[in-house]
């Protein structure tokens, strides 16, 4: 389905102060893909997301959602297709109750109140917090806030979910819940994060950004195990792929990924030997 494709063509963007945030970026995202966008602080991840969402407009090049170019005119239509979850849920949950917040989007598209209610409840059930619908945002824990923020986007029934740092500031259990939630979505997903283990688990494809340019674009396994590439981009190997600090072996928490890498190198047997 071509209308689910997102295409970025020769994108350029500078801030008013002259800082060139995005330089000649091109890539395509296909329906159902899950993509992690990683890079050091200030590499241009957030700017890229803003360009995808049409919050900023590029100085050169274009962003196409389906076959539609992102312009001021097409924004309402584009924004119904793309749902973005902000890094700080306090920015996203601006109404006084969870329900009102999740209903904000559908109401802006002038749905009947019955449909609004149905959508809100669907979205809240999807993220597992229907019991919190009448809560005030300040009464939610960090993980609950994150879930509510995701629900506020799901109620718009977008085709593509865009998330900025979905696991930042969460305790391990909440982080795990958000990761499981992300894995359960069938939407096309674009996730930016410094939590490379989360990216490794939830994304199949990774785009690495360095100083406003694409440094690498490939499968998650390939890129996240490439120590030299990651180091040169201000990143490091995901913890699960780093050598064990106690015994020094490179058996990660996610044995299955490690195995995959080793299979690629045809050294599976050796690994088994070291394990035993």
């Amino acid at each position: 389905m071509s209308h689910h494709k997102i295409e970025v063509r020769n994108l350029y963007f500078s801030y008013p102060d002259g800082h060139k945030a995005i330089k000649n970026m091109s890539f395509s995202i296909y329906h159902g893909e899950s993509i992690g966008i990683i890079g050091a602080n200030g590499a241009g991840k957030s700017t890229l997301l803003m360009l995808l969402m049409g919050v900023y407009f590029p100085d050169g090049g274009e962003v196409l959602v389906g076959d539609v170019r992102v312009t001021k005119k097409t924004l309402p239509m584009i924004r119904q297709r793309l749902g973005m979850v902000f890094q700080d849920p306090d920015d996203q949950l601006f109404m006084t109750t969870v329900y009102e917040d999740v209903a904000f989007g559908p109401r802006n598209y002038k749905l009947e109140e019955e449909d609004v209610e149905r959508r809100v409840m669907q979205a809240l059930e999807k993220v597992g917090i229907p019991h919190l619908k009448d809560r005030a945002p300040y009464k939610l824990s960090g993980g609950e806030k994150r879930s509510a923020a995701i629900a506020s986007v799901l109620s718009m029934q977008p085709d593509v979910l865009i998330m900025d740092e979905p696991t930042s500031g969460l305790d391990p259990k909440s982080r795990r819940r958000v990761i499981d939630l992300l894995k359960s979505f069938e939407h096309t997903k674009i996730i930016t994060s410094h939590d490379l283990d989360m990216v490794l688990e939830t994304c199949k494809r990774i785009i690495v950004i360095k100083k406003g340019e694409i440094a690498a674009d490939g499968t998650a396994v390939d890129i996240l195990s490439n120590e030299d590439l990651l180091n040169s981009c201000g990143l490091e190997l995901p913890l699960s792929l780093q050598k064990c600090p106690v015994c020094g072996t490179s058996k990660g928490k996610f044995g299955y990924i490690h195995e995959k890498i080793v299979v690629d190198k045809e050294a599976k047997k050796e690994l088994r030997l070291t394990r035993e």
Binding site: M53, R107, N108
Partner: peptide, 23 residues
């Protein structure tokens, strides 16, 4: 800066200056 982000969050969910409420 927060106001800017809140505005973006509202805008991305279809806010165009009109506030629609429930019944």
């Amino acid at each position: 800066e927060r106001a800017e982000r809140v505005y973006q969050a509202m805008n991305l969910r279809g806010f165009t200056g009109e506030y629609y409420t429930g019944d």
